[in-house]
């Protein structure tokens, strides 16, 4: 027991070290295009893993992730344009103050999105399957329409002048936190309850699991990280517009989760990275074809994947269990 706890802390420290090292050694996002894309991929990883908690782990179908992302993004961005650009913490230098405030802003964005998740989740998580999808979609659309109409939020033009504070370290850091959260959750009692709900809600209820309570908590956590991703995106692009939070964005995230394999964290991460890099890598194709085929390729690939490999890239498995199994498989051949 103690050894396991120790081991998991070791892993967390190792991860943090890796993130620190990576962001220290790699070129910064603004100076290198691959790193810039890596930043976008990191944000998508946060989105995909957070949606995985609801869609993959709990088996609830949410189509409103873009909405929570928008709530978090705009909250953090407002804080950025109103506070960070104007004020600075006392007794410390400006960069340090900005960093501290920025971290607070991402937390604030996450909290706002989590609160929105609670408000949406409480009444709607009684609904099942497609009905839940439609309600979450509806909420996301309402949020978008509201943003379009509110002058303070920049309306259709977008909220401009967000300080450019997101760097690769923060993206990797939050991706790691999201990943660890999802992984630890999946392996905890809580996670098993969620998996039970996914497999059979009625049976889970009969086993004494407070299904609505668990679902709402999973939903709030998922919204929190979506909000963090929105906050990171705003400080990355320095602008947030309603056009980035349409129904299509929600669909994109669902596609990442399903393509990776429903119920697999590493699958979601893999799919998020792939689906961010692929459209960027395909850009030069236009020089040869004359027309932009990226959407056609994306859609065809999605169809081919679903038809040829309906379970997704990894199915329900994780990269680490697969690796461990490999190792176990290899061992007996040496032993006798």
């Amino acid at each position: 027991m103690n050894a396991r706890v120790l081991e998991s802390w070791a892993w967390i420290l190792f991860g943090l070290l890796l993130v620190g090292l990576a962001s220290a050694l790699l070129p910064s996002a603004s100076q290198s295009y691959p790193m810039y894309v890596a930043g976008l991929a990191g944000i998508n990883v946060i989105l995909a893993v957070s949606l995985h908690v609801v869609n993959g782990l709990t088996g609830q179908f949410s189509l409103g992730h873009a909405g929570f992302m928008a709530v978090g993004g705009y909250t953090a961005a407002l804080f950025g344009t109103r506070i960070i650009s104007e004020y600075k913490l006392m007794y410390i230098s400006e960069p340090v103050s900005d960093t501290i405030l920025f971290f607070f802003a991402t937390l604030l964005g996450g909290a706002a999105a989590g609160l929105a998740g609670l408000l949406v989740g409480l009444p709607s998580l009684r609904l099942r399957g497609d009905y839940l999808a439609i309600v979450t979609l509806g909420f996301a659309e309402i949020i978008r329409v509201t943003i379009e109409n509110v002058e303070v939020l920049g309306a259709a033009t977008g909220l401009v002048g967000i300080p450019p504070l997101t760097n690769l370290f923060w993206i990797f850091f939050w991706a790691l936190v999201t990943f660890l959260f999802a992984k630890r959750l999946q392996e905890s009692t809580h996670g098993r309850a969620l998996a039970a709900i996914r497999e059979d809600e009625i049976a889970a209820e009969a086993m004494g699991i407070d299904t609505t309570g668990y679902k709402v908590r999973a939903f709030v956590a998922s919204s929190f990280f979506a909000g963090v991703a929105g906050a990171l995106l705003g400080y990355y692009l320095t602008i947030l517009t309603p056009r980035d939070f349409t129904f299509l964005k929600s669909v994109e995230v669902v596609v990442m989760v399903v393509l990776g394999g429903m119920g697999s964290i590493s699958g979601a991460i893999l799919a998020a990275i792939l689906l961010t890099i692929l459209p960027e890598a395909l850009r030069p194709l236009r020089e040869h074809t004359g027309v932009d085929l990226r959407m056609v390729i994306y859609a065809s690939l999605l169809l081919a994947m679903m038809l040829l490999r309906p379970r997704g890239i990894l199915g329900r498995q994780e990269v680490w269990t697969l690796l461990r199994r490999r190792r176990e498989e290899a061992e007996p051949e040496v032993a006798p």
Binding site: Q31, S32, P34, A38, L270, I273, I277, L278, L322, R326
Partner: peptide, 27 residues
């Protein structure tokens, strides 16, 4: 499965790695 997954990871790494090399030479 592992083989397919490994292939995809490889693709991703190659795509990213391929990008990196080129820009490093240029910038």
């Amino acid at each position: 499965i592992p083989r397919g997954a490994a292939l995809l990871v490889l693709c991703a790494v190659l795509a990213l790695g391929g990008c990196e090399k080129k820009s490093g030479a240029r910038t």
